[in-house]
Design a protein around this nucleic acid. Sequence first.
DNA 1: AACGAATGGTGACTTTTATCATCCTCTAAC
DNA 2: GTTAGAGGATGATAAAAGTCACCATTCGTT
Lengths: 349, 349
Amino acid sequence: MDKQKILIVEDNFEVRENLEEILLLAGFIVFTAEDGNIGVELAQKEKPDLILCDVMMPRLDGFGVLNILSKRPETASIPFVFLTAKTEKNDIRRGMNLGADDYITKPFYKDELLDVIETRLRKSNLLRKQFDKTEQGLSAFINTAKGYEELKKLSGERKNKRFKKRECIYEEGDYPRYLYFVKSGKIKSFKTSDSGKEYIIDIYKEGDFLGYVDLIKDSVYSDTTAALENCEIALIPKDDFMTLLFANRDVSHQLINMLANDISDKEEQLLQLAYHSVRKRVADAVLLLSEKEGKDEINVLRDDLARIVGTAKESVIRTLTEFKQDGYIDITDGAIIIKDRSKLTNMPS
Amino acid sequence: MDKQKILIVEDNFEVRENLEEILLLAGFIVFTAEDGNIGVELAQKEKPDLILCDVMMPRLDGFGVLNILSKRPETASIPFVFLTAKTEKNDIRRGMNLGADDYITKPFYKDELLDVIETRLRKSNLLRKQFDKTEQGLSAFINTAKGYEELKKLSGERKNKRFKKRECIYEEGDYPRYLYFVKSGKIKSFKTSDSGKEYIIDIYKEGDFLGYVDLIKDSVYSDTTAALENCEIALIPKDDFMTLLFANRDVSHQLINMLANDISDKEEQLLQLAYHSVRKRVADAVLLLSEKEGKDEINVLRDDLARIVGTAKESVIRTLTEFKQDGYIDITDGAIIIKDRSKLTNMPS
DNA sequence: AACGAATGGTGACTTTTATCATCCTCTAAC
DNA sequence: GTTAGAGGATGATAAAAGTCACCATTCGTT
């Protein structure tokens, strides 16, 4: 077998060097990334056979990395192993739920590390072989990468449309005529309640498709989408999309995957909305935005933050002030800067 | 053109007779149903060309009828016209959002009635012709009826498994090995928060599939399902389902439809959970259960009701007591009986 | 430059909801 | 028949969040 590629994502220099040395000696090709963002990029570029990733990192933490990678079909099936400081039960459970394959607690022994890596690589190879065998059946979902590419191709040839900050892309009640693909910028989709309050359902960023649910349902839009900043969006006519969807099996399966992921996300949101305190929900919203932004600094209207959290603007502002006093965040000129990511992540409910 | 079939769903005897007479004279074949349940059954049996349905009815109201029919592929594309007492703006908007095609306010003129019916029938015929033309493209989704049939066939041959009240079907963290099809009984699916509180995500009844989201995602279950009463469930092995899904385009499309509907439902739930008062959410939960049950009388543990609403048990009980005092419901031996459906439906948020 | 609107922030107060304790009733098990 | 436990219901109280009022900045527009 050829040499296998391993990606290390770890912010601590010494740990990173140490890991790299061990793995190089063991005969792997090693890539290293010093933070989550670089890790995500490297993973997509190099398609490693396994990823070792620290949980606690500035900017984009391990959960964020896993979350992003497991949504991109081309990286979704790469075995993902968490490095966690202590045996933090919550971290591990959450990581495993998100789809991590294994975890290693720091400090670790060389043998333990290599053992885990070997096990995971073996399992993954086994799986791949099985899929090769049964061309049909389960393997259907391995090729969703192709589906995503096909979908993206649809957007490539189109003329893009630019939307200014706050401009609406579509409104509740409109009849869907396009599938939208975000080329750049961020977009919010929200619903309005009888009493006129808005709730932000989702935030889309570069590389996301939007508007497909109501397009598929063949009903009028049940939400409104508006640009959070200047955006560039490709408009794909409904017919083109439907034709492709009908003609191409990979596209159907990619869409099924996207929908299934959306459902899981929304169910999780429901649970949090039901029982988590505003404090916890604000912390989660801040982390979410920082993840979407890929930065520790986020710029968001307090009104929008409140619409994500599902509460009153004043409550959000008060909570942010508390966070600032507790030293979890800084606020300068309205921008929120995350100072202690772990405290926000582990906020008690 | 052959004589066209119209279904009238209306609880008031006089209005029903009156409508029937007008339509018979106008040359339609007419079916009548005196409540929502009978209406749903008749619609599925007779596949009318148009449905006229009263909004306010005991047991299953017009929204419920529309909701059920629009989820079944074989009845989803039948033009649906609401009969509403006054020009209740909320009712109409809600109805149209749900996918009603038109509405008629009572009292109505004969000409107005026939005019609306004619318009709707013409549009629907036009649509159907278009679909026939473009065998590809949009028509893909018309045939999801076939997909549902194929899926159901999968369950037909299997041995059923019986679950006793409160028994678990699968638990959070389990690895999915089956697709489940409910033959009889009701089932709740719920998630547990860190603090140990449970939230009921969905309630399944006869004719529903469950467990497909995590099956598709190829991840462990992120929720737990348990029987609310004695149930009979068909277990469809994962491989069978995946093979069918891969092989059969109609099944893919049916699944896409199911997923898209789930997403819409959950987004609506999110909005409600965010801003509606406990009082409104309790009213909605009671209506939901009555709809699932197909009766005005519902038997539900206060704990479960609280888990649907996403609040404390005591708060639910207090709210029910208020409803009782206000004359909206009756409670006898723990069973909740709806007395004034319209008050519950139009509960201010 | 002046104005008004939009935005972030704070205080006072009210309402809603959660929590804890207690009581009652019914039922299933001993 | 007795008893333990489950489930429904209510009261008292505390905590959380919403609402209203107000102020200070900033920013874009006239």
